[in-house]
Design a protein around this nucleic acid. Sequence first.
DNA 1: CAGGTAATTTACCAATTGGTAGAGAAGCGG
DNA 2: CCGCTTCTCTACCAATTGGTAAATTACCTG
Lengths: 202, 202
Amino acid sequence: MAKTETPGGTKDRVLDAALASFGTAGYDGTSLDDLAIGLGIRKQTILYHFVSKRGLLNAVVDRCAGEMSSALEEALVDDQPDGDRVEAMVRAVFRVALDQPVLLGLLREVSRPNSPGAQRLRGHLEPLLARARVWMEAEMAAGRMRRTDAQLLLLSAYSTVVGVATEIEVLRAAGVGPTLRPVVQRRRELLRFLRASVDPAT
Amino acid sequence: MAKTETPGGTKDRVLDAALASFGTAGYDGTSLDDLAIGLGIRKQTILYHFVSKRGLLNAVVDRCAGEMSSALEEALVDDQPDGDRVEAMVRAVFRVALDQPVLLGLLREVSRPNSPGAQRLRGHLEPLLARARVWMEAEMAAGRMRRTDAQLLLLSAYSTVVGVATEIEVLRAAGVGPTLRPVVQRRRELLRFLRASVDPAT
DNA sequence: CAGGTAATTTACCAATTGGTAGAGAAGCGG
DNA sequence: CCGCTTCTCTACCAATTGGTAAATTACCTG
């Protein structure tokens, strides 16, 4: 029967609130009671839908990883076959970061080793990373990309992107308004860095 | 009188353990009871020395910020007057990161906005950042450095450095041994990035 | 030895936490 | 109207949490 989960339903509202709370207050800093009160419902309703707090985190991680993945897939598909795929992906990720900053907050929270949900996130990201690594190695073999450690480069780019979320908040705290400029500048820098790491001419 | 705090004393042992726990399990994920048990003492002993959990966090942050600051000061002082100060500072920070990875873990934990201790960390870092900004702006005015937004550049470099801590752990989780190579490579990349951002010729 | 101070401990406590058990609602097909 | 499923609620609980109060020990000094 596969009920298509009305977006206005309780389950989705809980997911939204949980994403925001996990991303800002952290997993341990989030209490199911507070979460429920904020939604005007009772804690048991949350537990009914997600069994346990851990289950809720898993659901949030699954959903975010899904959104991020499909954003990347999209960027790879409807782009010109041999256009700058790297740039397309970076732009896609930054677009997500701007549309839903909380998502990067969660990514940051959950990408800490020993964090609950870290393993699950890896499960989602690993196939993506594997594909990217294979592609990069093919490019390097074909001489279209400078020889370098693909995994390290990817990890570096990843941490840079996640770092953006933090920076935006830190800048805001430092009095630099929530303008677009820092993000755009950061994206430009990251692209320059990636091109430099990738350019076979160097 | 200023008792010079014997390094083997209980207070320092608590600080060490708290640093490790806050940096890996997070502030909320750390319980005073567990901390005490791990040290073979009672929780009240911790509270006697640091009044409250928050006080303990503040003490840990103070100590770490102090170590980081003095490492930076040292790099700036005993270096050649107009040698590559940027490189000296980067090397200093990476040295700290390698000697005490937990320290970067705490930095990461505490640099999350809305985190307890974030404000205190800012209090320590702000004067450093201000000095660096002033220096950079002077360099730019003298034409020895490319015109760019000093604050953004510093923030970018900062988040990159903090990202290293995570990466090391993630790599280890991914099966890449705790070798020096990733760190060295990352440092090289960061330096290249900084030079590119700074080079007036570009 | 007296006595004060610093350090650590035992004994409790109120509040919060994630979670269980079960009772009502609400809607729906027969 | 009945029975079934889905969803939400009230009631309760055991465990853990940070923290207070006071007793105890260790140590130093006069």
